[in-house]
C-alpha cells in the first residue's frame, strides 16, 4: 500500500539517523521563537554530534539563554552549533541577548569573526521563508524602508510609499518542532510553539520533524492539520513523551 510505504519512509527511529546525511555546507532552517517551546532540541543535539560544518543557519535567534523558559530550565538551542564551530553564516532577527554583557556562543563566534551575520526583520524573515516554500522569488515590503537594513536592496514606490525588495529563502534541511505527527507526516502544534515551523517546513528540500507523539494516519482530524504531510520527509518521536 502506498500509505504504508510512505509511512515506512517517513518515521525514523533515531535522531542520529534522521540527520545522518546532512553534509558540510548545508543550509539549515531551525525553528524556535527563542524559548524551549518550538525548539527542535533533539535534532539540534543530533546535528552537533553528527558534526557537519560550514553550515548556514536560518532561525529567529542564535540561542538566547533562559528566554521563554522556566527558572533553571535547561534546553538545547542552536547555541551548541556555535559552541562546536559548525556554523559559517547566520540569518536571524534576534541574534543575541538583550543585555550586551550576556555572552553566548554565537556572540563569541561573531566577535571572533568566525560567523557572518545577516539581521532580518522578524516579519520579513518569516515571509522570505514562506515565499521560498511557495515558489515566490522575491516580494516588496514596506518593512525596513529607509533604514540600514534596506541598504543595497532594490526599492520601489507603491501608492506613494517606499517598499524594499526582499528575496525568498530556501534551505537544504529544516528542523521542525511539532506536537503530533501522523505516519503521513501531517503535523499539529501547540500554542505559540508553532511560530516559524509551518513556513520552514515548506521551504526546505528535506524537512525533519521532532514530535511528542506519532499516531497512525487517520488519527489527526484533517481539519486540524496545520502542516500537510507533503512538506514533511522525516519524523522522529521525542523520548519519554507520547505513546
Amino acid at each position: 500500500m502506498a500509505t504504508d510505504r510512505s509511512a515506512a519512509r517517513k518515521v525514523f527511529d533515531s535522531f542520529a539517523r534522521a540527520v545522518a546525511d546532512i553534509p558540510d555546507g548545508a543550509v539549515m532552517m531551525i525553528d524556535g521563537f527563542g524559548g524551549p517551546g518550538g525548539m527542535p532540541s533533539f535534532l539540534i543535539a543530533a546535528l552537533r554530534d553528527q558534526g557537519a560544518r560550514n553550515l548556514t543557519v536560518i532561525g529567529n535567534t542564535a540561542g538566547l539563554p533562559g528566554f521563554g523558559a522556566k527558572a533553571g530550565q535547561e534546553f538545547i538551542t542552536t547555541a551548541v552549533l556555535y559552541e562546536n564551530r559548525q556554523v559559517r553564516k547566520t540569518i536571524a532577527s534576534f541574534p543575541v541577548p538583550r543585555s550586551p554583557s550576556v555572552m553566548t556562543p554565537f556572540r563569541k563566534a561573531w566577535q571572533a569573526g568566525e560567523v557572518e551575520l545577516e539581521v532580518a526583520p522578524q516579519g520579513t524573515l518569516a515571509e522570505r521563508i514562506r515565499a521560498g516554500g511557495a515558489g515566490i522569488a522575491a516580494f516588496y515590503t514596506p518593512t525596513s524602508a529607509g533604514t540600514d537594513l534596506a541598504q543595497g536592496k532594490e526599492t520601489r514606490e507603491f501608492g506613494g510609499r517606499l517598499h524594499v525588495l526582499e528575496h525568498a529563502l530556501t534551505a537544504d534541511y529544516a528542523f521542525i518542532r511539532a506536537h503530533r505527527a501522523d505516519t503521513m507526516g501531517n503535523l499539529t502544534y501547540r500554542g505559540t510553539s508553532r511560530n516559524f515551523n509551518p513556513a520552514m517546513a515548506t521551504a526546505a528540500r528535506v524537512t525533519i520533524a521532532e514530535v511528542d507523539e506519532i499516531v497512525p494516519a487517520g488519527e489527526i482530524d484533517p481539519e486540524a492539520v496545520v502542516t500537510p504531510g507533503i512538506y514533511v520527509r522525516r519524523i522522529v518521536q521525542r523520548p519519554g513523551a507520547g505513546q
Partner: peptide, 13 residues
C-alpha cells in the same frame, strides 16, 4: 550588532 525582532515590521505596519 542589534536585535531588530519585529520592531521594523510594527513600525511599518
Amino acid at each position: 550588532i542589534g536585535n531588530v525582532g519585529g520592531a521594523m515590521d510594527l513600525a511599518a505596519g
